Simulated assay, not measured.
Amino acid sequence: MKVKKLSLLLALMLLTACIFAGCGDSKEEAAKSEEGGEITVLAAASLTDALNEIITEYNKDCKDKIKTSYAGSGDLVQQIKGNAPCDLFISASKKNMDELEEADFIDKESRKDLLGNTLTLIATKEAAGKVTMDALTTDAVKQIAIGEPETVPAGKYATQVFENMKITDKVEKKIVKAKDVRAVLNYVETGNVECGFVYKTDAMLLDKDKGEMVAEVKDSLHDPIVYPAAIMKDSQQAEAAENFYKFIQEDYAKGVFEKYGFTVK
């Protein structure tokens, strides 16, 4: 009889322990839910200001933390292939997104073309009067900054412009390569180069006392500038990433993108 009572007591103690353990787990899960998740977004450098503004608005009603990393799209692709954390990728080039799709890194169903942009020629305040597309091959222009063509889509578009204008051999010694479009912008603003090629969205950020946009490049001189986005196939925060992804396609986000010079698809 004593053995039965002891067995019953032990069973009750075990059941109570399980119940409390379960409650503890529930509390932890609830706390995590209250805190929100962390979404890692890797995006082209030209998206920095617009996306940061959109994230600020998003966080007013959502507790998910958005962690961002901005760089040249090609560099970001290499980071993703090297297993860097990423839930959502926004590229400034179809080619870079194609590379990830072919390597089976993205959720193919989530891929969309979000935005468009315009390639522009900018110059320092002092050089703006003499810098034109036709003047690139003349002595009036000594140095031209572009993004590194292998990793920066804007740099690749610039090289296509030179090729289609048939001036590559005449400007190649003038080229100064930068890590991304923001670096090109900085080179011009600081006077390290006379001119450079950036997106219209970057040109709009030029300090008016230091530089200005002198020309929009004809679309026929380069591949279409498209910004595709996609959720990563192995995202650990797929649901939260999808919620943010939807938000950047809604009216508020569209308005912000347009304010910064993007065209919305």
Rank of each mutant, 00 (worst) to 15 (best):
F247S: 02
Q160S: 12
K166V: 00
R182N: 15
K130L: 01
E242A: 10
D219V: 03
L221D: 09
A45F: 10
V161P: 11
K81F: 09
V176L: 05
A229D: 09
S33L: 15
Y70D: 01
D169H: 06
L205R: 10
S26E: 08
A183Q: 05
N52M: 08
L12H: 02
A140I: 04
F244T: 00
K94F: 01
E250M: 12
Y199I: 00
V184S: 13
D207E: 11
V41E: 10
A84S: 13
Q236V: 02
A178P: 04
I54M: 06
P149W: 13
A127I: 03
L136N: 03
I66P: 02
I39N: 10
Y70H: 05
N117M: 14
E172C: 06
M13C: 14
G22R: 07
E172S: 10
G37K: 15
N192A: 13
P149R: 10
Y199R: 01
K208W: 03
V188D: 05
V198S: 06
A140H: 08
V131D: 07
V184M: 09
K108G: 13
E163Q: 15
N83W: 15
F105D: 01
K67A: 15
A71M: 12
D139G: 08
D207P: 04
L51W: 07
I146T: 02
L136A: 02
V161H: 11
K4V: 15
D207S: 12
E57R: 13
T68H: 01
S220H: 01
D87Q: 07
D219R: 09
G255H: 01
E102N: 07
L205E: 14
A31P: 02
Q78T: 00
V141N: 03
I80F: 09
T263P: 04
K208H: 05
M133Q: 11
K166Q: 14
R111C: 04
V193N: 11
D75S: 11
K156Q: 06
V141M: 06
P224E: 15
L100H: 04
E148Y: 06
N52H: 06
S91Q: 03
L15F: 14
D98K: 06
I19A: 14
D98Y: 00
T118F: 05
L205N: 11
K177C: 03
C62Q: 14
A230P: 10
E34Q: 13
Y199Q: 12
G82I: 10
E38A: 13
I39S: 08
D169I: 04
V171N: 08
L9F: 15
D134N: 09
V214S: 10
A71K: 12
I80M: 07
A183T: 00
